[in-house]
């Protein structure tokens, strides 16, 4: 088992400042671990992997891993990822974003990335809050939850990331949590190996900015909450009372070639036609 930690160390940039900038008990490090294990399991070459991150706590993940890493502007990770993938389809491009990043400021880019099915894997680290700016509500903050900008409780309803991305046409959509790491590893690896736009929502607790203000006593308690309230979709569907329960697993797996593949085919067709006519 030691190989798990050793493996991660092989992918970390040791000339970067450690430990990670994240707060104690923040799940982001676990997602990073999942990402590294998935890349390793698929046997991808470090040179061919690109991490494109947005702004926020999740955005800081990129700097720590020894891939090609790009830390972009807030909400725009998918646009840069789209440019990279179209420019060089051979690369495995992974966009790492937070909930505010991907679904608030970057919501437009996300639905369009899903619609055009660009061959990028989106890893959305959903902690229900803007962590880096100090705990403001985001578009996934549950109704009624407290934050510095919803001090009387969030009035607006939250996005369901899975449903939204599914409706936008993504090739694959799944949800995991940092408590259910093995399953998360499998979901990330699956997303990485499939064509088209594949999104994995990873529920990752933020005790500092979300948990403390919403009745959790510690980060550990938030992990317990994940353990108790999340369950595989098959079991979730059999439940009579689903209140407070969150389904996990793969929700959509459609076989849609990535935009880069369809574009290349179109260009080839165009050139062949021209060649034939000449």
């Amino acid at each position: 088992m030691a190989e798990i930690t050793q493996l991660i160390h092989k992918y970390l940039r040791h000339n970067k400042k450690f430990p990670l900038v994240f707060c104690p008990g923040c799940g982001h490090g676990i997602v990073l671990g999942s990402l590294v294990r998935s890349v390793h399991a698929l046997g991808l070459n470090k040179d061919d992997v690109v991490i494109v991150a947005g702004i926020g706590c999740s955005g800081r993940i990129a700097a720590y891993v020894d891939f090609n890493t790009v830390h972009t502007t807030h909400g725009r990770a998918l646009t840069v990822a789209t440019g990279i993938k179209m420019a060089n389809p051979k690369l495995t491009v992974i966009a790492v974003m937070g909930d505010g990043d991907a679904f608030s400021i970057g919501g437009n880019h996300l639905i369009h990335a899903a619609r055009r099915n660009i061959g990028v894997t989106a890893l959305v680290l959903n902690n229900f809050i803007y962590g880096m700016t100090g705990g403001q509500c985001s578009s996934t903050t549950p109704e009624g939850a407290y934050s510095h900008t919803s001090p009387m409780g969030q009035l607006e309803s939250a996005f369901d990331i899975v449903e939204l991305t599914k409706a936008a046409g993504a090739a694959g959509v799944s949800r995991g949590t940092v408590y259910h790491v093995k399953e998360l590893d499998a979901l990330v690896a699956d997303a990485l190996s499939r064509p088209g736009f594949n999104l994995v929502e990873a529920l990752t607790p933020c005790f500092t900015q979300y948990g403390r203000g919403n009745g959790f006593k510690s980060a550990v308690e938030m992990f317990r909450w994940l353990k108790d309230s999340c369950l595989p979709i098959e079991r979730f569907e059999k439940l009579e009372d689903r209140t407070g329960k969150i389904p996990l697993g793969s929700f959509v797996r459609r076989d849609i070639p990535g935009l880069e593949t369809r574009y290349a085919a179109m260009c080839e067709g165009v050139r062949r036609k021209k060649g034939g006519a000449a």
């Binding site: 494109v52 790009v70 972009t72 502007t73 725009r76 998918l78 646009t79 840069v80 990822a81 789209t82 440019g83 990279i84 993938k85 179209m86 420019a87 060089n88 690369l91 437009n108 880019h109 369009h112 574009y263 260009c267």
Partner: peptide, 23 residues
């Protein structure tokens, strides 16, 4: 050659930056 119509000008610049980083 790659041509992309993006969802807005912000995305257009993002894609151009990404492509440039990719050479």
């Amino acid at each position: 050659g790659v041509f992309l119509q993006m969802e807005d000008e912000i995305a257009s610049m993002g894609a151009v930056i990404g492509a440039s980083l990719a050479g």
